[in-house]
């Protein structure tokens, strides 16, 4: 399938980059890459905004932007260089497809609320998709935003929670469904590695702001990263592992 092939290719590029630069948040990118890829594959970025609030997952965004020719391959592999437009966290003044400067957690969702409010004032049909992490949901601004989005009736705001269990050794945010629902949001839970379930979200029209709890795996597709994601959180890849992991990605079944 074309989609699976392209997602594999984007993941392979992330591995190549992490090997070349000896750095990168790979597991955090692999948990969200299916969503980011499909968002761009379906050209949702043309009329809507995608804010990556968990900015450390930016390799997923950068590899997808490279795939769809928003940045060149050369720029992609300049990641982290002094004069590169691509840093370890995205900065909106560097590329038009970056809709907020993130990195410090808890900043993307309030900005998304402001953008969604502007769209309402303008009576525009624009939707704002904001992807946060489940760990990021610790931040108080998540819940301030949840209260305000409900109060302002922002049904053009979609908050996707990358529910990759990253906080299992500190403070997890359990029962996200109940939490958002009690704040007045519509909530849907999907498998973040299933294309059809992701696609079902894109055309959903709701009465209230929508929270998509996206169950994912950190480091999806690479067994060692899936089971040791804490160790792999921010790390480069050696030449030997690179070969092994590219093979593993190549054989990954993507639904």
């Amino acid at each position: 399938m074309e989609i699976s092939k392209n997602i594999r290719e984007s993941k392979k590029n992330i591995l190549l980059l992490a090997n070349k630069k000896n750095k990168g948040h790979i597991p955090s990118a692999f948990s969200i890459i299916n969503f980011v890829y499909l968002f761009y594959e379906n050209k949702l970025n043309i009329n809507n905004d995608f804010i990556l609030s968990k900015g450390h997952g930016c390799l997923a965004l950068y590899s997808v932007l490279e795939h769809f020719n928003y940045i060149t391959t050369e720029v992609f592999f300049s990641f982290g260089d002094f004069d590169s437009i691509l840093g370890g966290h995205p900065h909106l003044r560097k590329n038009n497809e970056i809709k907020a400067s993130t990195g410090s957690l808890g900043h993307g969702l309030p900005i998304a609320v402001g953008k969604a409010l502007a769209a309402k004032i303008n009576q525009s049909s624009k939707k704002i998709f904001c992807l946060i992490g489940d760990g990021e949901a610790n931040e108080g601004t998540t819940w301030e935003s949840a209260i305000l989005a409900d109060n302002l009736k922002l049904n053009n705001l979609i908050c996707i929670v990358d529910n990759n269990q990253s906080q299992n050794r500190s403070i997890p945010t359990p029962n996200l469904q109940k939490k958002f629902s009690s704040f007045g949001w519509d909530v849907i839970t999907i498998d973040g590695h299933n294309s059809n379930e992701i696609l079902s979200v894109f055309n959903l029209n709701t009465i209230n702001p929508l929270c998509v709890i996206m169950n994912t795996k950190k480091g999806k597709g690479i067994a060692d990263m899936e089971s040791n994601f804490q160790e792999w959180h921010h790390k480069g890849i050696t030449d030997n592992l690179l070969k092994l992991y590219i093979k593993e990605i190549h054989e990954e079944a993507i639904s």
């Binding site: 900043h107 309030p110 900005i111 609320v113 402001g114 953008k115 502007a118 935003s145």
Partner: peptide, 28 residues
């Protein structure tokens, strides 16, 4: 009517939200 909001007691989000409005061409 749609250009005045009392957003309560959520100052961090108030500033982030204002920045989002500005990115969309508003003058918050």
């Amino acid at each position: 009517k749609n250009r005045f909001y009392n957003l309560g007691i959520a100052e961090q989000t108030l500033i982030g939200l204002a920045s989002g409005l500005s990115l969309e061409g508003k003058l918050p």
